[in-house]
Design a protein around this nucleic acid. Structure first.
Lengths: 356, 356
DNA sequence: TTGTACGCGTTATCAT
DNA sequence: ATGATAACGCGTACAA
């Protein structure tokens, strides 16, 4: 068993370990380790010799060994729900965010992996597994719910984490969020400025916290403008384009009929456009639309007025929020916990009718 | 240091290890381990006792310890390029594939993680890191190039892997692919059946292997139909909708002008529709379109004739291809290596004009 | 059937 | 500055 991997033998090609390095240089593994880890108490000469040999032999520390010894894995996990119906679901959303996170994490020797909570498994069960296995040093949770047991669980387990989204379950963890509150506020003011009074709000069915943020912002800002809330105008929709189609069906049956709708799912307008067309109606004319979008929005005609977020920057901030929560890092500063919403950018289009 | 994690102390809440379990039950850790791993030589009674206690105390084996001891991690990595301009980047491509993979892998106690090759790091360098650290038991590579050094590298390193896409660099690894060859073939025959003779082919700029598959299929099937290839009809395009717009500009300047175009980027037609409109032309009338699509295609009017793939099934097959390559699994069958293209489904639309 | 003891690759402590 | 050696948590031959 000695010196053997469990992988098929490839005839001599074997992984270089720290003891191979030591033997090769005829020094002790302790010295090699210190050299590799850039410890102060090691001769400059031997240090460079070790580094050189390591590079030549292609030495890379074994993950498991290091993790076991250090008690840390240097792995950061981003938990994704494959069945998530959260807004912004989609590859390009996360890939951008990941890239932003990576750009920060790699500078600290940390490695980002996406953990894919299977749709067949309870999210909390899945989470418990990866936590108990000590698979990662820290986690990022997404698809945050209004009340989210995962948050208190992670807190109990004492695993550093941040959330992408807020929650009523608050253990003082850092969070980042997209400024949906601001989106709804701005949208309402834009619509009102163009003479709209009957403004609908499309909400995701699930208990994602963003739903509550949106509805609260909706009520608050309508009230501030002296417009009474018509509860019928607050409608639930399925995610995706099909949700948009049924949304249109729902909206046009209302009496009075809303003249505009605000939404958070960037795919929704595709269905809305389709649903309107099916009813002989024109987007931006018979129904005004405004909500969160991505570059996919540019595929729609007439142009969609929408809000975008800089996802790369979001990723950067998530990483920056995470780092201080991980102790025994030199740059740690537990005092200030990042909690902020990243700002939106408004992209003007032709999907808001001027009612004047 | 004993019994201490590197995480901040949370006052008593400590992770259950195998030795805690042993002490709790007053038996040896060896027995506990055997019980947990369902070894044959352990008393049924003690086994159930151990399992019960494990469940109660929430025991989950430590990843690093297990990996170090077994030489396996039970982690499968899917390598993603964050800057990939591969086709299919876009909404839910990977998430669907992941879900399909998970559905198989979890049954074998394997865990899928997405490894995100940062855009700031050379993909091969990144790959070498995760391989050498023995982070995963197996890998799936995507964005496969015509000649792909990563393939021979993984083969040399003797790490089980499969590729999503074929390559000239062939070390006998299992691969899955979307049947672009079949798409082009079917598209050509459909077009010819409707009287088209001047058929253009839109290719991605990068050296992804799918590009070569498409062009070969294009030549072969045109030849089979006795149509001579006009080299001007084979055009490179940027990815995304903007690529579609410039594609139209390119095509309408050709003399003779093609009557149809085949493409692989599912976003492209959106740009094509736009580009045609800008020139006062009608999709399906002045230029026929057919290619790979996703559910986004349903947003286009006139309806787009296109091909779709079942991404979940693709994921399932990838997992099934991977499993046999990983040795010392009971279900391993190294003899048959899965290499197949997943079939397309044709969705009929109105984007192909009948020239008769 | 169960317990003991060693090894996995690395880091850290304690001598030297 | 360097070498030996004990952890880290788990699996497993081997002994009992």
């Amino acid at each position: 068993m000695l010196g053997m991997t469990n992988y098929p033998d490839n005839g001599g090609h074997t992984l270089t370990g720290i003891r191979d390095l030591a033997r090769h240089l005829d020094i002790s593994i302790g010295t090699v380790s210190r050299a590799l880890n850039n410890k102060p108490d090691v001769n400059q000469d031997t240090k460079s010799k070790v580094l050189k040999a390591a590079a030549e032999l292609g030495y890379v520390p074994n993950q498991a060994g290091r993790a076991l010894s250090k008690g840390r894995t240097n792995v950061i996990g981003f938990v994704l729900q494959t069945d998530s119906e959260g807004m912004m679901q989609g590859d390009l959303f996360f890939i951008r965010v990941f890239d932003g996170m990576q750009s920060v994490l790699t500078q600290h020797g940390l490695n980002l992996v996406a953990l894919l909570s299977p749709s067949t498994v309870d999210p909390e069960t899945y989470l418990k597994q990866i936590v108990a296995r000590r698979f990662t040093d820290a986690l990022v949770l997404s698809s945050i719910h209004r009340n989210d047991a995962r948050i208190s669980y992670l807190s109990d387990q004492n695993l550093p984490f941040a959330t992408l989204g807020r929650s009523l379950t608050d253990v003082g963890q850092p969070w980042l969020d997209l400024d949906f509150d601001g989106v709804v506020e701005d949208a309402i003011h834009r619509l009102i400025a163009k003479g709209h009074r009957k403004i609908a709000l499309a909400l995701p069915r699930s208990d994602l916290n963003l739903r509550h943020i949106m509805v609260e912002s909706y009520r608050r800002n309508l009230a501030r403008s002296g417009i009474e809330v018509n509860e019928d105008f607050i409608v639930e929709t399925d995610a995706g384009d099909n949700g948009g189609v049924t949304l249109v069906h729902d909206l046009i049956e209302l009496n009075p009929r809303p003249t505009a709708v605000i939404y958070s799912d960037h795919i929704l307008p595709f269905g809305i456009y389709r649903g309107l067309a099916e009813n002989g109606l024109t987007p931006g004319q018979d129904l005004s639309l405004i909500g969160v979008g991505t570059r996919l929005a540019s595929l729609l005609t007439p142009n969609l007025s929408h809000y975008r977020f800089n996802l790369f920057d979001l990723g950067v901030r998530i990483a920056e929020a995470l780092l201080p929560t991980m102790q025994d890092r030199p740059f740690s500063d537990p005092a200030k916990i990042i909690r902020e919403s990243v700002p939106y950018t408004f992209i003007d289009g032709d999907s808001i009718r001027d009612m004047a």
